[in-house]
Simulated scan of single mutants.
Amino acid sequence: MPVTINAHQLGRLIDRTIGHVADEYTEPLHGICLETDATHLYTVASDRYTIAAARYRHHGLDGEPFARTLPAGSLSSLREWITALPGTDPVTVNVTEDRFHFTAPHSTLSIAISLSLTVFNWRGVLRGAMEQTSPTDDAVFPVLDTRLLARFAAADGMIRLRVTADRQAVLIVGEDFLGAQMPARARRAGIGTDDLATLDQVYTTWHHTLADAEPIAMPDGIPAQTDRPRYEVTRDIAETAGDLLKQTLRSTHDMFSTDMPSEALAAYATAGVTAWTAYRYLDALHTADPKLAATVVAETADQLDSGEIGEFAWDAAQQAGHDPKTWSEEYEAWLEARAKNTTTQPSTKEPSTITSA
């Protein structure tokens, strides 16, 4: 029955569903369901109006699958315990009759299970939302409560929506994430007496404002973003990844297509290697945690724009237990030795720490 997953991914599973936990007045749903099958660990939560199911491929299941619900009151303690662990630490999740047991290499957390928290048929609910068909009148569209829709902000950086009918659930899809939201009745949502229940009614309401305009596709009708100043660093993940790949290709192209001094060749090689390494790290981080990747890209852009990355790197090296002062002294000694030898190739090799940096 035990299942193993790393601490970072367990925390992310909880974060993606915790916003959908029902309040204490809906006791059977006042928690997050933890469930396993042969390949995945799932977290599932619902407040009856929304449902969210996230999954991650676990490191292995020992025995039969399980399905139990973590009480909402214990979620803060569990999340704090996970946050205190290194993200790569394996966490084994085991279930006994009345408790969850979370075991990391150096600590253990046990949480009591409330038998009143039953696991509902979330697979059936989501399959129903996925397989529901659209009516022939596709002009009818649902009313969505934006306060409920906002709960899906933690689902993924980008999501897909499937809308089928006025009174049917809207399907919400992300990477390793399925969710659904029930529409509200127009009257309860404060829109009046279904005045805006069809596209024809919306068109009639807005005809006075839009009648003189020619239809234009959205990308063609809105001015494109002007190129940002050269000194500004992009905060967009896709653009950052593109810039890194472009730098890699340009550096490797110039290395093999032109004659250049050895020092220039080394500079191009370093630029290409560094750009490719940064791209691989960013791609892996985005796959593991898109939200964290977006945060890191934005923070890095701010640091680059500040022009103080040398100071940031010095502080980071000290915090990581390195000795940047020694690195600097070694590099200064190498520069001095190179300057003394003006007629032949310097025999003194550049310090490895500087080269690798």
Rank of each mutant, 00 (worst) to 15 (best):
A154C: 05
A271I: 07
C33I: 10
Q303H: 10
S306V: 10
L144G: 02
P223W: 05
G242H: 08
Y56V: 13
S76C: 03
T103F: 09
P351E: 09
A316D: 08
T209Q: 11
R160M: 09
D323R: 07
A54K: 01
D166H: 11
G19T: 05
Q319S: 11
A153V: 11
A271R: 11
P135V: 05
T240E: 02
I14Q: 00
A241V: 06
L61Y: 04
T83P: 00
T270Y: 10
P105Y: 14
L115K: 14
T88P: 09
L149T: 02
T96G: 12
P105R: 11
D220T: 11
I172F: 03
D236N: 12
G157D: 11
A72L: 00
I18D: 05
L149K: 05
A197F: 04
T50H: 03
A155Y: 00
T295Q: 10
S76H: 06
S77V: 06
A339I: 00
L70G: 01
P86K: 09
E263P: 00
T133I: 06
A139V: 01
G31Y: 04
A169N: 06
M255A: 07
F66P: 04
L282W: 00
V125E: 09
D323E: 10
H208T: 14
F141W: 10
E131M: 10
P2V: 06
T83S: 14
D259M: 05
L171I: 07
Q132D: 09
D98L: 05
A189K: 03
T342K: 15
E330T: 00
F141H: 08
R68Q: 13
V297C: 01
D23M: 08
A278S: 14
E214A: 15
Q247A: 15
D195G: 14
P215M: 04
R228P: 03
T69L: 00
E24C: 09
H322V: 00
R188H: 11
H101I: 15
A284R: 10
G157K: 08
A264T: 14
P229M: 11
T83C: 06
D138S: 12
R338P: 00
L304G: 02
H40I: 07
F100N: 06
D47F: 01
D195N: 12
D323W: 05
A112Y: 12
R230M: 03
R79A: 12
T326I: 03
T226D: 02
P351T: 09
W81A: 01
P86C: 06
I18H: 02
T26R: 15
P105E: 12
A264F: 12
I51V: 14
A112T: 15
A293N: 04
F66H: 05
D289S: 11
W334I: 02
A165I: 02
S134G: 07
E311D: 14
T274I: 05
G307N: 06
V3F: 12
G73H: 06
S107M: 09
K340I: 02
H30F: 11
D47T: 02
